[in-house]
């Protein structure tokens, strides 16, 4: 018996070390697969068009930032980023403002039709944007909101409000109900309790919900393109401009692409531990 334990211990340890090594190989290969296409875009964005088209190089020989300069100095280009940021921010604020009280209600109370309502919200997250593209176009045209930021922000509420409600409800369930009751006994009204005590308690949840609203509004193109022509046109739709008479301006297209990745890449570090929870609609 004693022999058996002394024998198995080193082998399992050795096996564990081997497994760690093989898993490092797997992860390296997977990350390489993920990063290679992005690297290629970055690589192209730093090349001149002559280099892109005439010679095949794995890294820019003739390093240039001209493609980025083109975008950042031309209002027709950089206003696309501004437009995107405006409607994305509006959408995030609206979504959170309406979702916070609703998520509180769902996490604390039973009321008539609550289960059906919760499910109905979910179905909107699952609604194909293609189904809504045409009716949105007509709805916002008829109320005179076509080609405005608020139109896109409201349209994106279709899938972001349900998402925010679900994520926030997941976080709020983790806060013990005794806290609410104590606060009410201490004479707090609902509004003051919610803002002063409850919201700080679920601050991370609010951050995660905000991140996901921001993200899904940022990556969506079909609706934002359908609802805008000039004044509120998002960057993603402006990218098609690179198709000029003399062919496609590959360098500028690549640079524009890289610039759309930046906002997500900047904030992702802060939500890395909650990202699974967000994608699972707050259910992990």
């Amino acid at each position: 018996m004693a022999d058996a334990t002394t024998n198995t211990f080193p082998t399992t340890q050795r096996r564990a070390r081997k497994r760690i090594k093989s898993s490092a190989v797997v992860m390296t290969l997977y990350l390489l697969f993920l990063l290679l296409p992005i690297y290629w875009l970055l690589n192209m964005s730093l090349k001149t068009n002559t280099e892109i088209l005439n010679s095949f190089t794995l890294f820019p020989r003739d390093l240039t930032f001209a493609n980025y300069a083109t975008i950042l100095t031309d209002p027709a280009w950089y206003m696309g980023y501004v437009n995107s940021l405006i409607y994305v921010t509006m959408n995030t604020v609206i979504s959170l403002a309406v979702a916070l009280p609703a998520a509180y209600a769902f996490s604390r109370y039973h009321f008539m039709g609550d289960k059906h309502l919760f499910f109905w919200l979910l179905t909107n997250r699952m609604a194909p944007p293609a189904v809504f593209a045409l009716p949105f176009f007509q709805l916002y045209s008829s109320v005179g909101l076509f080609d405005t930021h608020i139109a896109v922000a409201l349209a994106h509420c279709l899938f972001n409000v349900p998402l925010a409600v679900w994520i926030l409800e997941g976080f709020m369930r983790g806060v013990p109900k005794e806290i609410d009751e104590t606060a009410y006994l201490d004479g707090y009204g609902f509004g003051r309790f919610f803002v002063k005590i409850f919201m700080p308690l679920i601050a991370s949840g609010i951050g995660v919900a905000a991140f996901f609203c921001f993200m899904f509004s940022w990556v969506e193109l079909l609706l934002s393109r359908t609802l805008t022509t000039v004044d509120a046109k998002p960057i993603a739709a402006i990218m098609t401009r690179t198709q000029g008479a003399s062919g496609i301006d590959w360098g500028v297209l690549a640079a524009a692409g890289i610039l759309t990745i930046v906002p997500g890449a900047l904030v992702i570090y802060f939500v890395r531990n909650y990202i699974a929870k967000g994608f699972a609609l707050g259910r992990v």
């Binding site: 969506e220 993603a236 890395r272």
Partner: peptide
């Protein structure tokens, strides 16, 4: 975690563009 999340945050038409070029 951070590296793996990166493709999830890229606008969908840029994802298309990346692969169109690639």
């Amino acid at each position: 975690l951070v590296m793996m999340s990166l493709p999830l945050l890229i606008p969908w038409n840029v994802v298309g563009t990346i692969w169109q070029i690639f």
